[in-house]
């Protein structure tokens, strides 16, 4: 291949990346506009007042609190269950392994709306009320897949002889888990956990169905989109949400070094 790319290729690649990033910059700009009813461009003036307005909104804080609690619990459940499957899939060969793989692919292969409505009809049929816990159940399901993908990729790099060496030197199964396996997969657990957290924090499609009257931050955000007034407040929250999800993602990328395990990683909406 030639040492230098053609100009056309370079322009096409850069334009494509710009297309991916330009809209987010505009969101940032509109958080400062003085016009609060339309998306007039260029903004007639710039102001900082929307930050104050946004932070004074009680309903926003309530939604944020709910989102954080849901994300924490869903991530915790997903970490335990996802690591268990990953361990089983790594350590054992068994009949029906393909079925397990399939059931872990389904939540990311099928559109999220299916998960949402399926859970809702089931919740209704069982006569349950949508609540904090129904949100958590929905989130934990796809977060589990994310954790599984991260941890199983790391397991594959852990040589089986390390585990054998530990047992050989007198450590029983639990000691081996604590001193050899856990340190080996720690960063993958952390990365998987952070991605799961970001995923849950941002989820709207499934949540719409399982939340009932509760409002997570994305649902609050969605309802704000259809309100004609104080539009820049939405932008302030959008920046905030973006920042909150970026931090764990960047950290997770650091932890997995190449970031190859982040590939999709179960992120579909």
């Amino acid at each position: 291949m030639k040492a230098k790319p053609s100009l056309a290729l370079r322009i096409a690649a850069i334009a494509g990346i710009a297309f991916l990033h330009f809209p987010l910059l505009i969101i940032l700009l509109y958080a400062f506009t003085t016009e609060d009813r339309t998306y007039q461009f260029p903004p007639p003036g710039l102001t900082l007042k929307w930050f104050g307005v946004a932070f004074a909104r009680q309903d926003m804080w309530a939604a944020l609190g709910l989102s954080l609690r849901v994300a924490l619990v869903a991530t915790a459940v997903a970490l335990v269950l996802g690591t268990m499957v990953a361990g089983a899939m790594y350590r054992f060969n068994f009949l029906g392994k393909d079925v397990v793989t399939l059931s872990l692919i389904l939540p990311i292969a099928l559109p999220g709306i299916l998960t949402g409505i399926a859970l809702l009809t089931t919740i209704n049929r069982l006569g349950l009320e949508p609540s904090f816990w129904t949100i958590v159940i929905g989130h934990a399901t796809f977060c589990m897949v994310t954790v599984y993908n991260n941890v199983v990729a790391r397991f594959r790099r852990l040589t089986p002889s390390q585990i054998e060496a530990s047992m050989d030197l007198g450590a029983d199964g639990f000691q081996t888990f604590r001193y050899v396996i856990l340190p080996g997969i720690a960063t993958a657990l952390l990365a998987g956990g952070m991605l799961a957290f970001a995923l849950s924090f941002d989820e709207v499609i499934v949540t719409t169905f399982t939340a009932g009257q509760d409002k997570t931050l994305p649902i609050w955000f969605l309802s704000e989109l259809f309100k004609p007034r104080e539009r820049p407040v939405t932008n302030v929250v959008a920046i905030f949400v973006t920042a909150v999800t970026f931090v764990p993602i960047l950290l997770a990328q650091r932890l997995t070094q190449s970031g190859e395990e982040l590939h999709g990683g179960g992120k579909t909406t």
Partner: peptide, 15 residues
């Protein structure tokens, strides 16, 4: 872990 035997592995298996 209950055998009075130790092993040197082919790939060394150092932690």
């Amino acid at each position: 872990y209950a055998r009075d035997v130790n092993t040197v592995f082919q790939d060394y298996a150092l932690f």
